[in-house]
Design a protein around this nucleic acid. Structure first.
Length: 424
RNA sequence: GGAGAGGUGCCGGAGUGGACGAACGGGGCGGUCUCGAAAACCGCUGUGGGCCUUGCGCCCACCGUGGGUUCGAAUCCCACCCUCUCCGCCA
């Protein structure tokens, strides 16, 4: 949520931000119009309430019954008028909040301009694309051949875009989760195990609602929403809290499954485990002092990169341009890992500085040590990493001519010492 | 799912229609005392919004949430949510 005061005071700045994203700047004028209406009505409503409060205090002290009855009658009339006016005010406020809720965050100043993902900037590439003296296979061939990936039975159970990990495949994913969490803990993050279903309010707070309703699963009868990312419950963790300044920064990490409706055109990304309705992810999250969020972003990026480096995977850092930024983000780096069998860069992580956008929606503040009003914290989130795509990169990178796959060294302790996945 | 109890400020806890934004206690902050500290005593201590004569101002709202009754609601009524206790069911 953007600051209404900012929109009021610097509408041109906000319009410029929306324009950079490819959004309609006219939204700003709509908001300003509603805000003006709201304040005009509010002024009237508050004057009437003040009048009613004042007279109501006089009434019990009035001794003349006629004068008293007259005042009560007058206040009854005032009350009816007030109620009607309050309804109009409410309607305007609802529309104003609705408009604000649909407005994305503004890009940071140093985000490259661009229309869509083609204008993203590759910041650096780390590692060399591996070479093979045989034709590397895609994971959708490797996995089933190794007996660790079962697409047919996944489909039988749940339909397209579902699969079953089997044997060492399931164990490898579990090893990755365990290893990543341990790594993030060493990096200073506190592990959290949140609910995988949360209330609508929490989904709103993180910015997935109202805009991405179509991408979310929820219970038809109760207020339960399946988390599309751990970012959602982690944002909600400190909802409606006022933190002490000395408590900041807070670093959290969590493993959760993620549930997403993927209403994509049939045929895109359907092969393999790249995109499913359910996938696992280990997430990093920070609540920080506003002055520090820029450097906290770089630090989080470094933490995410370390996972790929330690796994020995080839990756590149991509900075998203203004047109490709997510709804809540003001600056984002994506990490893309090279998958030699599929022959493409896979987005395995997205690390974002959200500024106070989520904090405002979730009402998360801190009390300045120096005194004064509570201020909104800044929040950051980053995947560290998405599991299926990491698995893809491992299988495809470490495959050998005979179809076996070497397990990265850091994972072996989590695999009971196993060094190689071999075809059954 | 059934029965009961309850949701008040940073915390505990009063308050059942009119000066209650909220007693009292604790905590925190400031001060007095002290070589210093403790104790004691005194004072201060919510959030959001609106207005302009930007005053250390005025006004409005907030006692789980949303409605209702009333001139007036923390207090009465209705619905919902949450917490706790007991019973049932259950990994």
């Amino acid at each position: 949520m953007l600051d209404l005061n900012l929109i009021r005071r610097q509408p041109d700045l906000v319009k410029e931000g929306l324009r950079k994203r490819g959004e309609d700047p006219a939204l700003v004028d709509q908001v300003l119009e509603l805000d003006a209406q709201r304040r005009a009505l509010l002024k009237q409503v508050e004057a009437m309430r003040a009048e009613r409060n004042r007279v109501s205090k006089e009434i019990p002290r009035m001794t003349d019954p006629d004068a008293r009855a007259a005042k009560i009658a007058a206040m009854r009339t005032l009350g009816d008028e007030l109620k009607a006016l309050e309804q109009r005010l409410r309607a305007v406020e609802d529309r104003l909040h609705e408009q604000l809720a649909w407005m994305p965050n503004l890009p940071a100043d140093d985000v490259p301009l661009g229309a869509d993902e083609h204008d993203n900037v590759v910041v650096r590439t780390v590692g060399e694309k591996p070479t093979f003296d045989f034709t590397p296979q895609p994971h959708w061939d490797l996995g089933p051949a190794l007996g660790i990936l079962d697409f047919d039975r996944g489909v039988k159970l749940s339909g397209s875009r579902f699969y079953v990990l089997r044997g060492a495949g399931a164990r490898l994913q579990r090893a990755l989760i365990q290893w990543m969490l341990d790594l993030h803990i060493r990096q200073g993050y506190v592990e959290q195990y949140p609910p995988f279903m949360v209330r609508e309010r929490v989904v709103f707070a993180s910015g997935q609602l109202p805009k991405f309703r179509d991408n979310l699963y929820h219970d038809a009868e109760e207020d339960f929403w399946w988390v599309p990312t751990a970012e959602v419950p982690l944002t909600g963790l400190h909802m409606d809290e006022i933190l002490a300044e000395e408590d900041l920064p807070l670093y959290y990490t969590a493993y959760t499954p993620c549930f997403r409706r993927e209403k994509m055109s049939a045929g895109k990304d359907v092969r393999g485990i790249k995109r499913g309705h359910q996938f696992d992810k280990v997430e990093m999250y920070k609540f920080v002092h506003p002055d520090t969020s820029d450097r906290e972003l770089e630090a989080m990026l470094a933490d995410a990169e370390e996972t790929l480096r330690l796994l020995g995977l080839t990756y590149r850092v991509v900075q998203l341009c203004t047109g490709d930024l997510g709804f809540a983000a003001r600056k984002t780096y994506d990490l893309e890992v090279w998958a030699p069998g599929s022959g493409e860069w896979l987005e395995v992580s997205s690390v974002s500085n959200v500024g106070d956008f989520q904090a405002r929606r979730a009402n998360i503040r801190y009390r300045p040590k120096a005194g004064g009003r509570p201020r909104f914290v800044h929040t950051l989130n980053g995947s560290g990493l998405g599991l299926p795509r990491t698995l893809i990169a491992i299988l495809e990178t470490y495959q050998q001519a005979d179809g076996s796959v070497v397990i990265p060294e850091v994972l072996r302790p989590y695999m009971g010492g196993m060094e190689v996945l071999r075809p059954a």
